[in-house]
Design a protein around this nucleic acid. Structure first.
Lengths: 111, 111
DNA sequence: CGCTTTCCCTTGCTTACCGAGGGAAGCGGG
DNA sequence: CCCGCTTCCCTCGGTAAGCAAGGGAAAGCG
């Protein structure tokens, strides 16, 4: 099945970049943070998160650095790059454009 | 490539159902209407539209009927069913929930 | 009689995500 | 001291969704 009832396809990159724009975090914490700030609405699984992060890193929008986590474990902290920040702005603008269009259709009443 | 810059994945069903909730239409007209009401923002191709309609019909949310179009051609008019209307409400509610959550994340500033 | 427009459809591909799996290291309790 | 729980890392195989590119037919018009 695998129906994404707790995520909108194509928005994961945007969400990750936005979270990292506020503060560098490791993968696991990103998932937790996303869940927390969205009040449990947005939930992303490991199997989605890690590949997405690797893709973003490969595209140069984030960089990784191994550090010690708060719980004294090795963790790969991701940080937004300058191109990443610009990309985030583009993605955010595009989301706003599309979300507004869709919402306007959803709210349509008889002409 | 095929990057959906003019659509958000997973919202096509919702958009189609909503358009049909206002007025029965044939496939080609649905595409036009969607483009029109969204001020050119939402554009859906043939290759997306027809399979989506067939799927919706197969699931019982819409029904089809051959008629003459305004331009005197044969056209398959789709109409929302009662279960389809209920499904539309669920999908719309889910969209609102997720879109609000995503938008709230996108608008985040430093805590 | 070609040309454009309006309408129908399918096939193969890519992207994006998920579920299920596996592993290692710190930490606390018994 | 070991065992289980949590935290953290990752990959693989599958599925869903949409798109580009193909195809066709019939109406109307010059």
């Amino acid at each position: 099945m695998s129906k994404p009832s707790d995520l909108v396809q194509g928005t994961l990159d945007l969400l990750i970049l936005k979270i990292l724009a506020l503060e560098p975090l490791h993968a696991w914490a990103i998932g937790q943070r996303l869940k927390q700030v969205s009040k449990e609405v947005l939930q992303v699984s490991d199997g989605s998160l890690y590949p997405a992060l690797h893709k973003l890193e490969h595209e140069g929008w984030i960089t990784a650095e191994w550090k010690q986590s708060d719980n004294n474990r090795r963790a790969k902290y991701y940080r937004l790059t300058a191109p990443g920040r610009r990309h985030l702005e583009r993605e955010a603008a595009n989301w706003n454009r599309l979300a507004a269009a869709i919402s306007s259709v959803v709210k349509l009443k008889e002409a």
